[in-house]
């Protein structure tokens, strides 16, 4: 099984295995970060995610705050205000209690920082060797305000594409620790909760069409998913994408495309042209959106295809990363 890269193969699992097995209409809809359900007249956003990151601690965060922020962000991408979170742990027998304590406290702090609460949980212990230290699952519910309609299928030609800041930091930070490769400067994960940022964004630009947190598969995967779900083309101005110099250098060494590298505290927003400047200003005014930029435009040409325009004028097809890095060059 090689389906973890967040690219093409992951979405194939959903389409070919879970969808037929579960038979739920909500799963059949375009892939989204959280699902919105009508419950007794209230619109409830609901999501779940499991965290298996290695190492557990890394510059800029740990598995604990990642699990809290990730689920908050999945709720926020539906325009929801987080209400409460659950946490489930799978612990490897013999795990150092001090490690669990650090992770738990990081989760508490992250929830508090995001103005939400961890209200229920579960713990299982598996035999030594059956888990890599510790795994965390978090689920979350949130409330979606009336009049907010955000979804990956709602992008329209003419929309501007915004990102909330520098991309590539989380993935490079993890890879750097994991491989022991130093790149001169230490690159820190951008792990952050985006609920507050989305609230500010919605206030400034109520007509937001689509939101995505470009986690696994990076910005490229998020753009491809929205292009496919909305049946539109996206033209990305590659020079406008904020890539920090150390990230660019590290990606050069590792042979990675920064657009394919994971982020844990960034969002990409599809906003009607008329509200794009207001949206940009709102993002830049927030601590988690200071590096925001307009990076692209939605077109009705090449539906389903994301095209990058390089500073030299050439254009390339940008696609989702595969599970493995397999060069296409002959």
């Amino acid at each position: 099984l090689g389906h973890g890269g967040g690219g093409l193969l992951g979405s194939e699992l959903v389409e070919c295995l879970f969808l037929p097995a579960f038979g739920t209409a909500e799963l059949a809809a375009a892939p989204r970060d959280s699902v919105v359900l009508e419950v007794g007249g209230v619109r409830l956003a609901f999501t779940t995610d499991s965290y298996v990151v290695n190492p557990l601690f890394f510059p800029g965060g740990c598995i604990g705050d990642l699990a809290v922020n990730g689920t908050i962000n999945d709720l926020a991408m539906s325009g929801a205000t987080p209400v409460a979170l659950s946490a489930g742990f799978i612990l490897e027998e013999g795990l150092d209690m001090a490690v669990l304590d650090r992770v738990a406290r990081a989760m508490g702090a992250a929830a508090k920082n995001a103005k939400t609460r961890l209200v229920t949980g579960d713990t299982k212990v598996v035999e030594r060797g059956h888990a890599d230290g510790l795994y965390v699952n978090t689920s979350g519910i949130g409330l979606v305000a009336a009049g907010v309609h955000i979804g990956p299928e709602r992008a329209r030609p003419g929309d501007r594409v915004l990102v909330s800041g520098a991309i590539g930091e989380h993935g490079v930070a993890i890879m750097s620790v994991r491989s022991g490769i130093e790149f001169g400067t230490t690159i820190r994960s951008d792990s952050a909760p985006l609920g507050g940022l989305v609230a500010e964004l919605l206030a400034a630009a109520p007509q937001i069409h689509a939101l995505r947190d470009p986690t696994r598969g990076g910005l490229a995967a998020s753009l491809c998913e929205i292009a496919a779900a909305s049946r539109v083309g996206i033209v990305l101005d590659e020079a406008a994408v904020p890539v920090p110099e150390p990230v660019a250098a590290a990606c050069g060494f590792l042979g990675l495309d920064p657009l394919h590298v994971a982020n844990e505290g960034k969002l990409v927003a599809f906003v009607p042209d008329a509200q794009a400047e207001a949206a940009l200003a709102a993002l830049r005014a927030h601590r988690y959106g200071a590096g925001a930029a307009i990076v692209g435009t939605v077109t009705d040409g090449h539906p389903g295809v994301v095209v990058g325009r390089t500073p030299l004028g050439a254009t390339r097809v940008i696609d989702r990363p595969l599970g493995e890095q397999l060069p296409r060059i002959c």
Partner: peptide, 18 residues
């Protein structure tokens, strides 16, 4: 030197080394 050191680590750790 940085390239040599990095590639040596990449190969040892199997980072993006098909």
């Amino acid at each position: 030197p940085l390239e040599v050191a990095t590639v040596r680590r990449m190969v040892a750790a199997g980072v993006n080394c098909p």
